[in-house]
């Protein structure tokens, strides 16, 4: 196999090298995609620590599944599919349920507020409003059923098309449309309730 410099290799080509156990190619692949995995996980779970753990799990899975990866699928689609599956199973975990019941949700809200503070801080009032708004959006998003939430995140933040979302979630395009119609209605209702 011709070896391209890791920096200029396509992700698909890097994956073929990862399949042969090339850890340098794997590190390059991670550097290229870790932020998007982290962003999906964080917006889905609402907690920075859990998102970091999940991102690690996703890339471990990428490493282990590399020999079975076929370049017929776009690497990012394949990566999003792994991330989506991990997100769904993370929510099912007994420990997560236990932790939420014990009230750790407040710490996650602090994460959201801290991030809002980092991005925009023109005045203390704006800061407070931004943090509050981020909290409201996170709560509304977090209340959606998991598949609706994933479809929303992939569309709104990752810019995927309906067809790509369908491939990632393993459903039909009309099913994605239906998921998004319900998700948007639900978000609109919840955000309106917060404002009232």
């Amino acid at each position: 196999m011709d070896k391209c410099p890791v920096g200029s290799c396509s992700s698909e080509a890097l994956m073929q090298r990862v399949a042969l156990g090339d850890s340098q190619a794997f590190a390059a692949l991670m550097a290229r995609h870790q932020d998007r995995v982290m962003a999906v996980a964080f917006r889905f779970l609402g907690s920075r620590q859990e998102a970091e753990d999940l991102a690690q799990e996703v890339f471990l899975r990428v490493w282990r599944a590399a020999p079975s990866y076929t370049p017929s699928a776009r690497f990012t689609t394949w990566l999003y599919a792994i991330t989506a599956n991990r997100c769904k199973s993370a929510l099912r975990s007994f420990w997560r349920t236990g932790v939420l019941l014990l009230g750790a949700l407040s710490a996650d809200e602090e994460d959201q507020a801290d991030l809002a503070d980092q991005r925009r801080s023109p005045s203390p009032e704006d800061l407070a409003l931004g943090a509050e708004r981020a909290r409201q959006v996170a709560t509304a998003l977090g209340s959606l059923p998991k598949t609706q939430r994933l479809a929303t995140i992939l569309l709104r933040y990752e810019g995927l098309s309906y067809a790509e979302i369908a491939e990632v979630l393993g459903v039909s395009v009309p099913a994605v449309e239906s998921l998004l119609v319900r998700a948007k209605r639900s978000l609109e209702e919840k955000l309106r309730q917060h404002q009232e």
Binding site: S23, M30, Q56, F59, L60, Q112, L115, Q118, G130, A134
Partner: peptide, 25 residues
């Protein structure tokens, strides 16, 4: 409502993430 979703920032992955994964491998 759709525009409001833009107000939800997300953190970047920590710089140590790749190293942690490679260590686990």
């Amino acid at each position: 409502a759709w525009a409001a979703l833009g107000e939800l920032p997300a953190p970047s992955a920590p710089s140590a993430l790749a190293g942690q994964v490679l260590k686990r491998i």
